[in-house]
């Protein structure tokens, strides 16, 4: 189970950036004197077996939140607990429990798919036997055996994303974080990813799924958390969120909830 309480992250501008910002009209309320509050107050939780949809416009603070959850960034304030363990205090525990996949996390192009996955297994301290067994299981599940020996730079986008999923789950994490995993994928590849996420529903795993595709949220997520301008605007069941507007559509609920209708420049 994941619990995120009053999470905040502030970035200090460097001198050059601060000078550039000085005297200019503030376009984002998160901008402070020489600092930017990327995440101001985010709270949500995700139970085992649940898929939580993380929603928000571009620049809302979703990726920063997920990076804090994955220990890549250190929170300025607040708490992240994974099964009761504080991520900031026990980063190694968190890293062993989390599998992270985003559109930006890549593979080593000169290694084969199998080598890539095995490498990350070794990084997580798995034995060769454990790696072989898990690779067999995951590759079968994701239908990857046909391209297991191919170098990553020879893969199609869909194959690459499946290989990335295998890389993210090789250590059998208890928390899976997907940050816009279907961006740029064709319908068939996107379906593979969504089916994979779906397969974890009701398992021991907590899945956090960040996306801009609301139909995917409707299909997969039990609960949603909407982040806007670095703050949680809604956290609750997906149906309840959709029902917050007269139309009952997730799309309308989303538009009604975000303050900034224009993309942040």
């Amino acid at each position: 189970m994941i619990e995120i309480k009053d999470l905040a992250k502030t970035f200090a501008y460097d001198k050059k950036e601060a000078k550039k910002k000085k005297g200019k009209t503030v376009s984002d309320p998160r901008e402070g004197e020489g600092v930017f509050h990327a995440v101001k107050n985010v709270s949500f939780s995700c139970n085992a077996g649940e898929v939580l949809g993380l929603l928000g416009p571009n620049g809302a603070g979703k990726t920063t939140t997920l990076r804090m959850l994955s220990t890549a960034l250190e929170p300025t304030a607040g708490q992240i607990l994974i099964n009761g363990h504080d991520v900031t205090k026990e980063p190694r525990y968190a890293q062993k429990q989390i599998g992270f996949l985003s559109g930006k996390t890549g593979l080593y192009h000169r290694l084969s798919v199998r080598e890539n996955v095995a490498y990350f297994g070794r990084m997580h301290g798995l034995s060769r036997q454990q790696i072989d067994e898990r690779i067999e299981k995951i590759f079968t599940m994701l239908d990857m055996h046909s391209f297991a020996g191919k170098r990553a730079d020879d893969l199609s986008t869909g194959m690459m994303q499946r290989a990335s999923i295998a890389r993210a789950v090789i250590h059998e994490p208890k928390v899976l974080v997907f940050d816009e995993p279907t961006t740029g994928l064709d319908v068939i590849s996107a379906k593979t990813v969504l089916d994979f996420i779906q397969s974890y529903k009701g398992s021991e795993m907590s899945v956090i799924f960040s996306t801009h595709h609301l139909h995917e949220v409707e299909k997969l997520c039990d609960r949603v958390c909407l982040i806007d301008l670095g703050e949680t605007k809604f956290f609750g069941p997906t149906d309840e969120f959709a029902a917050s507007t007269a139309s009952g559509s997730l799309y309308d609920a989303f538009l009604a909830s975000v303050n900034n209708k224009k993309e942040v420049a």
């Binding site: 220990t71 890549a72 062993k96 992270f100 996390t105 890549g106 593979l107 990350f120 997580h124």
Partner: peptide, 9 residues
């Protein structure tokens, strides 16, 4: 891949 690497223990 750097971000991926940073997420390992």
């Amino acid at each position: 891949t750097l971000e991926t690497l940073l997420l390992t223990p």
